[in-house]
Simulated scan of single mutants.
Amino acid sequence: MVIRLSDFKKETTQQAEELPSWVRTDTIKKLYLAAIDIHMKIKADIENKKDLSPRERQIAFRAVALKCNMSPSILHPRRQPELVHYIDELNQSLTHTLTSTQAKTHSSGRKLTKDELIKENRLLKEEISRLSNITLADSFNQAIENLLIQESRQAALNIKNLRQKIRELEEIISTQAEQNRRYMDLVSTKVDPS
């Protein structure tokens, strides 16, 4: 009797019927299913030892949103924290799969050739560059959000001050209109010979 490890392997993805509790709307459900679909495709490519760039080895939030014909801004930690966390977990799973696949490739104990080392070095440099770009992008996005929040607070304060000024001017106008009416009454009574 042959025993294989794959016979005991757990499925990492959930079936469509077994949606997590945080999948409440159709939009989140579409994004969730798209993330699983992309995860399975990337995982199959990794297991088939397809040569993928560091960017192609991970699930991009933008790719998930665009697959569902939605704006990429919908997948933001503030809007969909559970889904973003789930996609991060799927990305970790893909990293483990890649590590496992690479470990199987180099298990013979032989040293890598110069070309293989150069290729691995290039891939690692690309990964470092990608991660630093992601960090910079997150920093810039955070700075822009903070700036927008400050500007919106300032705009709200300006609106409040302008409304107060409008109320004061309306009171002045009504007071002057009342005085003008009195003066007109006074002038008309003096001019009227009756």
Results as ranks from 00 to 15, higher is better:
residue 138 D to Y: 06
residue 43 K to G: 14
residue 96 H to L: 14
residue 130 R to V: 05
residue 167 R to K: 12
residue 118 I to R: 14
residue 109 G to K: 11
residue 96 H to D: 14
residue 103 A to C: 03
residue 8 F to H: 05
residue 110 R to A: 10
residue 41 K to R: 14
residue 71 S to A: 07
residue 146 N to K: 12
residue 154 Q to K: 13
residue 185 D to P: 02
residue 58 Q to P: 00
residue 3 I to M: 11
residue 3 I to A: 11
residue 137 A to K: 15
residue 138 D to E: 15
residue 64 V to Q: 07
residue 146 N to M: 07
residue 166 I to K: 08
residue 73 S to P: 00
residue 8 F to S: 03
residue 57 R to I: 00
residue 75 L to N: 09
residue 116 E to H: 05
residue 98 L to H: 15
residue 67 K to Y: 06
residue 90 L to F: 02
residue 50 K to G: 01
residue 158 N to E: 14
residue 85 H to R: 11
residue 89 E to F: 01
residue 23 V to W: 02
residue 108 S to D: 15
residue 190 K to N: 02
residue 169 L to P: 02
residue 56 E to Y: 02
residue 171 E to D: 13
residue 96 H to Y: 13
residue 78 R to S: 09
residue 158 N to V: 09
residue 184 M to G: 03
residue 45 D to G: 07
residue 9 K to C: 09
residue 78 R to F: 03
residue 102 Q to G: 05
residue 46 I to Y: 05
residue 56 E to S: 12
residue 43 K to T: 15
residue 52 L to M: 14
residue 113 T to V: 03
residue 19 L to W: 05
residue 109 G to I: 11
residue 150 Q to F: 05
residue 78 R to P: 00
residue 169 L to T: 01
residue 154 Q to V: 06
residue 6 S to D: 13
residue 111 K to N: 10
residue 14 Q to N: 06
residue 121 N to K: 14
residue 69 N to A: 07
residue 137 A to T: 15
residue 182 R to F: 04
residue 82 E to W: 07
residue 114 K to I: 04
residue 97 T to F: 03
residue 20 P to L: 14
residue 113 T to Y: 01
residue 190 K to Q: 06
residue 109 G to T: 08
residue 70 M to D: 00
residue 110 R to K: 13
residue 115 D to L: 13
residue 32 Y to H: 12
residue 116 E to F: 04
residue 27 T to Q: 12
residue 186 L to C: 10
residue 142 Q to P: 00
residue 130 R to D: 15
residue 11 E to S: 12
residue 138 D to P: 00
residue 129 S to H: 13
residue 75 L to E: 06
residue 173 I to K: 14
residue 129 S to I: 08
residue 89 E to A: 04
residue 180 N to A: 10
residue 80 Q to G: 00
residue 85 H to A: 11
residue 113 T to A: 06
residue 102 Q to K: 15
residue 1 M to V: 04
residue 97 T to C: 13
residue 107 S to E: 09
residue 87 I to K: 12
residue 155 A to R: 08
residue 51 D to H: 07
residue 154 Q to N: 11
residue 16 A to V: 09
residue 83 L to P: 03
residue 141 N to I: 00
residue 147 L to E: 12
residue 1 M to K: 03
residue 85 H to N: 10
residue 133 N to K: 08
residue 67 K to D: 08
residue 101 T to R: 10
residue 50 K to I: 14
residue 66 L to H: 05
residue 105 T to A: 13
residue 106 H to Y: 15
residue 124 L to W: 03
residue 21 S to C: 10
residue 178 E to L: 04
residue 92 Q to K: 11
residue 32 Y to Q: 06
residue 77 P to D: 08
residue 158 N to S: 10
residue 123 L to W: 03
residue 116 E to Q: 15
residue 167 R to A: 10
residue 180 N to Q: 07
residue 177 A to W: 00
residue 73 S to D: 08
residue 42 I to N: 05
residue 30 K to C: 04
residue 64 V to G: 04
residue 161 N to F: 01
residue 41 K to F: 05
residue 163 R to Y: 00
residue 115 D to M: 11
residue 96 H to Q: 15
residue 160 K to R: 10
residue 24 R to L: 11
